[in-house]
Write a protein that binds this DNA or RNA. Structure first.
Lengths: 356, 356
DNA sequence: TTGAAAGCGATACCAA
DNA sequence: TTGGTATCGCTTTCAA
């Protein structure tokens, strides 16, 4: 069986043309569906192609057409449910539009991100969707744009980069949730993020390179200031880059002389660790501690108590970014569009009045 | 600023060669680091390349070398934590070895999977890692193998496909967990999977196309038979393909005249839904129902009670598959290897003696 | 409607 | 050590 079947490694248009008794050019036209070919010839070529199990070499095609039918995607960490869901949104839309996705993890590392962009440029992707680790270090993205490559930004914008951008209204969500906590009587509210600073300490929101997170922190700090709270900056903790880091930070925080009465977790991975630590320390949510987490991860509704979350339109974030990019690739592009999707606060049982 | 920077679209070796005052061939040698070049020339060429911001066109390179530096990966659903973790393992190893990954979702659909393989073949990937939706419908994979493309199977093997394969000992894990449940006095044990049959009913394990799941069910049924239980087939439920499906199935099951006293969930997404439903119905785990889930998802340890799980070496599953493939691509290949990684049962508080 | 031939951008062989 | 040139598989003028 196996050996009767032809090895289709390198069955080329030339082979098909030969078998069909026509020229290479004609065969190519018939196969590619462009130019004009007589029905008789088209059939002959199609038959020959089928018989030989001809598969066009996309690489060669790309080289002449200049289009690769590929979209490069660079995200922080595919293992993070946030990104895996966003990527799902991207790939669904991309495939529908006939594009294949090349996915690269940056690990939220700027250097890795730059390398990823380089790889994708070399592979001649038709377009790029990136979730920049640092909004200020985007020279590599400028370069890509300069070279004429369409780019869409996902979840994180950049002031200096005038390209299609899709983000959620994270500042607004942070403001809202902070207001609610303050209304509940909380005055010691901690914000915990994976983003890091060189010395692992937080001073000002400007130090936070990740745009979405910076906006959240700005919102948080702004509302606290409005409420007359001072020294709120000290309640922002950075560097929760692994579960272990997070556990250490949270444990220290909760065991300090002035423990927070509420914690805002910047993503669901951090939220989960906060939840684990409070258990281990024998505390009670929401009696001893209120918890709010960004990202409505699936598990947040089944814990005891279920966790109040900021429900971000994650799938749509990805899908929309892909849509904008595809439209641009298809030449339906206007000036760069900035899309801001709405977050929704889902209040569950992990938040309650502060205890005095 | 921007306009002073050269558009590096199509800066070719020829351009670099011209600027460096050497021939195309020499420039290519200097840049590619192959052949022999004098130091003086190498420097000149390198300088010219840097100045022009030359980026080799991988597409063109691939066409001549026949290698694309790309690995194609086809998984069921990147949104499933199982796959996103496995993919993380794959990409980590692949990148380390200098390969880029093209990822395609099959949605566990056989037709989509075949199309995905087609796309990857056309893109001339150097190798393939696939998690076949159906172990019997692998003609498209045979074809790929026949055409000489290295293939590694992830999580699901195939008897007819003699290629590198990495799976976990799921049958063994299922046997173990079933024995424990039986030892706890359970006699009405349900197994719930997303895999489906044409009429959405389960008759025999042979109907299950997904290898890993089939082996689990075989283990489950085998132990039940050993224990003298009959009609166990009726306790296997298929078609839990979405949260909604799962909820419907579980609700019906638990509200029937003969509800199960224990449920084995085939993946963490299903396990989560079972957990949600038991809550909604006002039941108690483990008093009214014991629950075991495959995949040690992060949330399983924070629920009340925490969930007993089969901890699969998911990251390693992916990493190992990639390792085998890379070795083969590097010509360090021997005969196809079948790797079976160990599962571990993590007993938590969701399992207890059956109530009578 | 068809065919011949010129690219695309790199590599690789063979002479010089 | 270098340069000239064929080649990879396809698309795309340009003539016929």
């Amino acid at each position: 069986m196996d050996q009767s079947s032809p090895r289709n490694t390198s069955v080329t248009v030339a082979d098909v043309a030969h078998k069909a008794g026509v020229s290479k050019a004609t065969a190519a036209r018939a196969l590619g569906g462009y130019g004009t070919v007589s029905d008789r010839v088209r059939e002959a070529v199609t038959a020959a192609a089928r018989e030989l199990d001809y598969r066009p070499n996309e690489l060669a095609r790309s080289m002449t057409t200049g289009r690769s039918g590929t979209i490069g995607v660079v995200v922080g960490d595919i293992e993070n449910p946030f990104f895996s869901l966003a990527v799902r949104g991207i790939t669904d839309v991309a495939r529908q539009a006939g594009f294949t996705v090349i996915l690269i993890n940056s690990g939220e590392d700027f250097v890795a991100e730059r390398a990823a962009i380089g790889t994708l440029l070399a592979k001649r992707v038709d377009g790029l969707i990136v979730s920049p680790a640092k909004e200020n270090d985007v020279e590599h993205l400028h370069e890509a744009v300069r070279s004429g490559l369409p780019l869409a930004l996902l979840d994180r914008g950049s002031d200096t980069l005038d390209v299609d951008t899709v983000i959620a209204d994270d500042r607004h969500a942070a403001e809202n949730i902070t207001r609610r906590l303050i209304a509940l009587g909380h005055s010691r509210i901690a914000y915990l993020t994976a983003c890091d600073t060189p010395d692992h300490r937080f001073r000002t929101a400007k130090d936070i390179g990740t745009g979405s997170v910076r906006r959240r922190i700005e919102g948080f700090l702004g509302v606290c200031r409005e409420a007359g709270m001072i020294g709120t900056e000290d309640w922002v903790h950075v560097g929760a880059i692994t579960p272990e880091h997070t556990q250490r930070i949270v444990t220290e925080m909760l065991q300090s002389a002035q423990p927070p009465t509420a914690i805002i977790a910047s993503d669901s991975i951090i939220g989960l660790e906060v939840f684990k630590v409070h258990r281990r320390l024998g505390l009670s949510i929401p009696d001893d501690l209120s918890l709010v987490s960004f990202h409505d991860a699936d598990w947040t509704s089944v814990t005891t108590p279920p966790v109040t979350v900021v429900r971000q339109p994650v799938y749509d974030l990805g899908a929309t970014a892909a849509k904008l990019l595809v439209e641009r690739l298809n030449g339906e592009a206007q000036t760069p569009r900035k899309v801001v999707l709405k977050n929704e606060i889902v209040e569950r049982a992990s938040t309650r009045e502060a205890r005095f």
